[in-house]
Amino acid sequence: MRRACNWAAEPERPRGLGAVIARRLAADGLAVAVNYRSDRAGAEKVVAEIQAEGGAAEAFAGDVTDEGQTADLVARAATRLGPSEVLVVNATGPQPPVAVEELTWQDHLDQLLFFVKSPTLLVQAVLPGMSAYIAAKAAQHAMTQTWARELGPYGITVNVVAPGWIPVERHAGVDEADYLAEVPLGRMGTPADVAATVSFLASDGGAFVTGQRVTVNGGHA
């Protein structure tokens, strides 16, 4: 059985896109390591859903913005599930709206923790044991292209999946009408749409796709 690591460093638990991607990769036959930071019950709920469908998954605690914790949880996952073949970086922290006149450097650093530091720590942690692919959501396309060039000779692919607005639990009650009016395909995207793209990039069918930013937004400008 192939292994996947779905590290989700959301504020509390893997949910929304992370949970759907984890379930899809498990359905594709990968054993999935589901990461959480504080809500063990939430992560174990995702694992239970995967196992109920006949898939393999385990939950692992750890803050993927912390170097020591990241290395430790990757090592624990490898011991339990074997070396990583697929890495899905889905780390997203709080994104409070801040007026430009109130924006501080710390606000920028808070975002860099999830969108730059976390992907870097995870790639460095899983790289020694990798034998197939990386599907990494990184903050900057340039970083993805650099890693793709550097890791390509080892048969490792690196891509960014860039969703449009995909409503999940935290968007409950938000009016979708204005956004939907600008989507050429005429519907809102779903977590399953994003999971399908990740599934392709992690599959043999996506083995020759690397250094790309794959936009999943129904044509929204």
Rank of each mutant, 00 (worst) to 15 (best):
P94D: 03
Q111E: 12
G189E: 02
D72M: 11
A4W: 00
S38I: 12
N35V: 04
L30S: 03
F60M: 09
V88T: 04
G218P: 12
A26I: 00
T210C: 06
A78K: 03
A22K: 01
L127P: 00
D39K: 03
G205Y: 06
R37H: 08
I50A: 01
A142C: 07
V161N: 04
G18Q: 04
G164S: 08
L201Q: 05
G29D: 00
G55E: 02
T146N: 15
C5K: 03
G82A: 00
E182K: 15
L109W: 11
Y133N: 02
P191A: 05
T190G: 06
A56E: 04
R187P: 12
F60I: 12
V168F: 02
G82Q: 00
R23D: 00
R149C: 14
A48M: 07
V86N: 00
F60N: 06
V168Q: 02
G219T: 09
T157P: 07
A4P: 00
E176V: 14
G164R: 04
T65H: 08
M188H: 12
W165M: 09
V34A: 13
L81V: 05
L103T: 12
F60Q: 03
A52H: 03
T104G: 07
V160Q: 15
A19T: 01
H108K: 09
P191E: 07
G18I: 01
L112M: 15
